[in-house]
Amino acid sequence: MAKQTSVPASITSADVARLAGVSRATVSFVLNDTPGHRVSETTRVRVRDAARQLGYVPHAAARSLRAGRSNLVLMPASISAIGRLVSDWVDDLHSELDRHGYTAVLHAGRFADPLDAARAWAEMRPAAVVAMDGDRFGGRAAELLRRAGVRGLLAFAAQPVEGVHTVGFDHARIGATAAGHLIGRGRSRIGVVMPLERGLGTLAEPRLAGAESVAARHMATVTPLELAYSRESATALARRWRSLGLDAVFAYNDEYGALLLHALRAEGVSVPDEVAMVGCDDLVLSALQQPALTTVRLDLPSAARIADTVHELIETGTAPEVAPVEAVLVHRETS
């Protein structure tokens, strides 16, 4: 019979208070930075040293109950699929939310139904939800979250979302900007990369639609091109490139663009002579390619501005409008 391992008892604030020689209330005041309570610096140091020595960490849920509200800002994990540009921006947003005393958490669930997603988010009782793919966010989902006590709802979306503080982020405009530039450079047979990685389809499809809308007005054609983010997939596409009869490609973003650019060059397909190319995000790597990659820069509102907006929504229920994300063409050598 296997020997059972005993589970050590959890360290509590009472243990910290006993070691520090203070009351549990004083421990709470110090470790939760409770305003309005005078505690000497000597006592604060003693309490923190005791907590550190015992390995005590305050209970977030209990602290939220005492405060009457959560300090969590929930962000659906689909943001991780948007790309390095937005991922880096989200890292900055985490820091800015921390400045306001909030803890940003990623929710990894994937839901076909927005209401199912809202129910899962509501179970965590966050103070706010920030959705980067807000086009799936509807009024019913927003109402469900509000009934659960979520005070701040902010979404990046192409159109205003009922009951949600919406920041304009139209992925169709990205595709339209790329296609418009390629057509303006004399190209008329445009391929649009459709990444095969999970979660990217919801962003790639409106970018394809934006490219198609521009092409339809200029007697140009658009061909979707499935591509996985792997050397093997890019090589396979590059080897059949000439059979596709395309003279341009919008590569979804700079990372897929760099991948495809190297594969095309390895197969002897000249860029931009045979194929003009546009990426997106204006990452550092785009300017370092040979030839340098033309791209669409996304002018995002600052992480500090979004954190301030979320804080105002939580505190007051309203906040000033935030300027939409702008798509700006950065012309380099691949087009």
Rank of each mutant, 00 (worst) to 15 (best):
G138V: 04
Q4H: 10
R69Y: 04
H94E: 14
D308S: 08
P160K: 07
L19C: 05
L97G: 06
S188G: 10
D254I: 03
D15K: 11
R147N: 13
N71P: 05
P272F: 00
E326Y: 00
L144K: 10
T316Q: 09
L144D: 11
D135S: 03
R217I: 05
A292G: 10
V192Q: 02
F137H: 06
D299M: 06
S70C: 11
M194C: 07
A204Q: 09
V86F: 11
M194T: 10
E123L: 14
L313P: 01
E267F: 01
H94S: 13
M124R: 15
R305N: 05
G83R: 05
A248N: 12
L106H: 10
A307M: 09
L54H: 10
L244W: 01
E96F: 00
T223W: 04
D116T: 12
T202P: 00
R66V: 15
V7H: 06
A142F: 02
A62P: 07
S230L: 00
T5Q: 13
A112Q: 14
V150P: 06
A131G: 11
Y229C: 06
E212S: 12
A25M: 14
S6K: 14
T334R: 03
A141D: 09
L54Y: 05
L93F: 11
H59R: 13
E205R: 13
A263W: 04
T42W: 00
F169I: 05
A319T: 09
Q4Y: 03
D133E: 06
V328C: 10
P58I: 01
A215L: 10
L153A: 05
E162N: 09
A61C: 04
R207P: 00
H311F: 00
S80Q: 14
I11C: 11
L85V: 12
D299K: 10
P160F: 03
A204T: 04
T12R: 15
R69V: 08
R24F: 01
G201P: 05
P126R: 02
Y252S: 04
V269D: 02
R38N: 10
T103R: 09
V271L: 11
P224E: 12
Q4I: 06
L54G: 08
E321M: 08
A17P: 01
Q290T: 13
F29G: 02
Q4T: 11
G245Y: 04
G279I: 03
S70A: 11
V271A: 07
V330T: 12
R198V: 13
V73M: 09
A276R: 04
G21C: 09
L65D: 07
H37T: 12
G184Y: 01
R69Q: 15
L182T: 13
A263I: 00
M1R: 13
A61S: 14
Y56C: 00
E123N: 14
T5N: 11
M132F: 15
R125H: 15
P320N: 02
S95L: 14
R265V: 09
G55T: 01
L200I: 13
A178V: 11
L145A: 08
L244A: 06
D254M: 04
P301F: 01
E205G: 00
V57M: 12
Q159C: 07
A248V: 12
V22W: 04
A251E: 03
E96P: 03
A148P: 05
H171Q: 15
M132C: 08
S23A: 07
R38S: 12
S243H: 10
F29K: 08
V7R: 09
V105L: 15
R140P: 10
R136E: 14
F137S: 00
R136G: 15
A77T: 01
W241P: 09
